[in-house]
């Protein structure tokens, strides 16, 4: 807290000097010790998420993998279309929960890919909430490059591996 106060003081002082509030733009004062609000403990809930196709083969047509471009987490039109279908199913099955797994291809660094996979899963989650699905029903997890669908080292394999995959319970 002391540091925050100090940083704030320095910022105020500079701001006064500059006659502006620009300092926060350059060096955003950090929210020190922000352990609460936005930092919830991980909780995937009780019970195991399962592959929709394992529960009912007919679900495979709805819960198709969504694919991403290299080093990107924005949703393609195809991905949105799949998510539209998943949102419809979730609306019709209000007791069901969904887990979105974010995956990457093998290229690049493991740690960066874990972060990228997290963003991919969250892109899909955000879109589903925009379609009216309660965020509390949507879980996310990143596997980075750790769980490739295709173990190959070709572009064909990489395309399949850059994906969001869905589990339900």
């Amino acid at each position: 807290m002391q540091q925050t106060a100090k940083t704030l003081l320095v910022c105020l002082f500079i701001a006064a000097l500059m006659g502006s509030v620009a300092c926060s733009k350059k060096n955003p004062p950090p929210a020190a010790l922000d352990t609460n609000a936005e930092l919830q403990n991980a909780d995937l809930g009780a019970g195991e998420f399962r592959s929709p196709a394992d529960i009912d083969p007919a679900l495979a047509a709805i819960f198709k993998n969504i694919l991403f471009n290299y080093d990107e987490f924005s949703l393609t039109p195809q991905a949105r279309a799949i998510l539209d279908g998943i949102a419809g199913w979730l609306k019709n099955n209000p007791a069901k929960l969904v887990l979105i797994e974010g995956h990457c291809d093998e290229r690049g660094t493991n740690e960066y890919n874990l972060a990228l996979g997290d963003r991919r899963a969250n892109s899909a989650k955000t879109y589903l909430t925009q379609l009216g699905i309660d965020g509390a029903r949507i879980y996310t997890i990143s596997y980075g490059e750790e769980r490739p669908l295709d173990p190959g080292h070709s572009e064909a394999a990489w395309v399949k591996n850059r994906r969001g995959e869905f589990k339900i319970k």
Partner: peptide
Amino acid sequence: LSPKDGNSEIFTLDVQRRTLER
């Protein structure tokens, strides 16, 4: 950590006190 929408940020964790600083 990725506190919001999968946007990963660097934090420090005090190993004894278990407090986090962004």
